[in-house]
């Protein structure tokens, strides 16, 4: 179709890519820092780092999503 029908849909694009990236970022954050905490726990024979790691991972993922897609 013509040029003028191709409206700038950047807002929709940003919204969609944010919406579909968030679960993946959250999972990745939990996996990396939760996994790191779990390994630390195994190594040091403790049990506190695994939950701390998971929470840290979520916090960092939310921060990343906020900085990337938030204003």
């Amino acid at each position: 179709m013509s040029e003028q029908e191709r409206r700038p849909e950047d807002d929709g694009q940003d919204f969609a890519s944010a919406a579909w990236s968030i679960p993946s970022y959250l999972l990745a954050g939990m996996a990396i820092y939760g996994g790191g905490g779990w390994l630390l726990d195994r190594w040091l024979d403790t049990s506190a780092f695994f939950p701390i790691g998971i929470v840290l991972g979520i916090v960092l993922s939310v921060y990343l999503v906020y900085r990337k897609y938030g204003r």
């Binding site: 993946s24 999972l27 990745a28 954050g29 996996a31 990396i32 960092l60 900085r67 990337k68």
Partner: peptide, 25 residues
């Protein structure tokens, strides 16, 4: 390394980006 973040934070966030984009997505 998405632009616009304070430098030290990349150490913490780059692994998340990598895992999220290349493995979990």
């Amino acid at each position: 390394f998405p632009p616009g973040l304070p430098k030290p934070i990349y150490i913490l966030l780059s692994p998340i980006e990598f895992l999220s984009n290349l493995i979990i997505a």
